[in-house]
Design a protein around this nucleic acid. Structure first.
Length: 271
DNA sequence: CGCATTTCCTGGAGGC
DNA sequence: TGCCTCCAGGAAATGC
């Protein structure tokens, strides 16, 4: 489940390999995952020089000359890899783009198709579905920003998951951050103790930074751009650990449903 | 408007 | 072993 740390990991890798290179042949195997500019993707991308690869929220943005932004959203099962172009093509590979002079190609694969690709040209007039408005970057939030955002009567976990408010957190890092801050996910945000707000912000930033250092969390599908697993899974304190002891107090981790999502808590630390 | 719930999709897990 | 059902989740769509 690629969230901010996973997408950041992939973006950093691609930003080492791609800038100053030029895109070559483009093969689209499923047109319905491509949005934005309605022209055939090859016509837009082939021969264009790559300027940079960045992350915004859970999205990865490849900027090309002139004023072309290719946006990838990995959804739930999406993978974006740089692979030798002779390597066998895995099932559900929807898009391949040769990177000239490297013997490699960029491959976008997404079995569940919750993700997608947006080709934004000019002023980005043709956007299409599933590219809504984004809230603040968690790592850039100030305490003042955060206090303003959490001042509403809504379950804190649902609020943290809302990409229109804070953009980049998903199920794993919400649960980990709430545990680190000792906050129950059902707590109404506006009912947080004043001292808990800076604590939660620190927990969010600390959790994300640590996860980036470990190249993200691989549970099933996620891989780095060179196909490797992220190792933050071994650092998880609550997520996917139902029944196992809390590493702080030894109490068994419990699972509940919040905002329609599996949610893992320590009932002792997050009372 | 604001918030909660449902829906989309496939592979893997588990029951029998 | 094979067949069936259920579940995972990001975020748009729908419901209240």
């Amino acid at each position: 489940m690629p969230e901010l740390p996973e997408v950041e990991t992939i973006a950093r890798h691609l930003n080492e390999a791609l800038p100053h290179r030029t895109f070559g042949r483009v093969v689209v195997s499923r047109t319905d995952i491509i949005h934005g500019d309605p022209r055939p993707l090859g016509g837009v991308l082939t021969g264009r020089r790559i300027l940079s690869v960045r992350r915004r929220a859970k999205r990865l943005v490849i900027e090309l000359e002139p004023d072309i932004h290719l946006v990838f959203h990995l959804g739930m099962s999406g993978r974006l890899t740089l692979s030798p172009y002779r390597r066998p093509i895995e099932p559900h590979t929807h898009l391949r783009i040769v990177v000239r002079g490297t013997g490699q190609e960029l491959r976008f694969r997404d079995p569940r198709r919750f993700g997608g690709v947006w080709c934004l040209t000019g002023n980005g007039e043709y956007v299409g579905k599933r590219l809504g408005k984004l809230g603040l970057e968690p790592l850039d939030m100030t305490l003042k920003d955060f206090r303003r955002l959490v001042d509403r009567n809504r379950q804190i976990k649902a609020l943290l998951l809302d990409q229109g408010i804070i953009a980049g957190l998903g199920n794993i890092y919400c649960d980990e951050s709430l545990h680190a801050a000792g906050i129950h996910p059902l707590t109404p945000a506006s009912a947080l103790d004043p001292a808990q707000v800076p604590c939660l912000l620190k927990a969010i930033k600390g959790t994300l930074r640590k996860a980036i250092r470990f190249k993200g969390t691989t549970l099933i599908d996620y891989r780095t751009a060179d196909g490797l697993e992220g190792s933050f899974r071994t650092k998880l304190r609550v997520y996917h650990r139902e029944g196992q002891p809390c590493q702080t107090c030894g109490t068994a981790i419990e699972r509940l449903i919040v905002a329609g999502r599996s949610t893992f808590i320590c009932p002792q630390c997050q009372a």
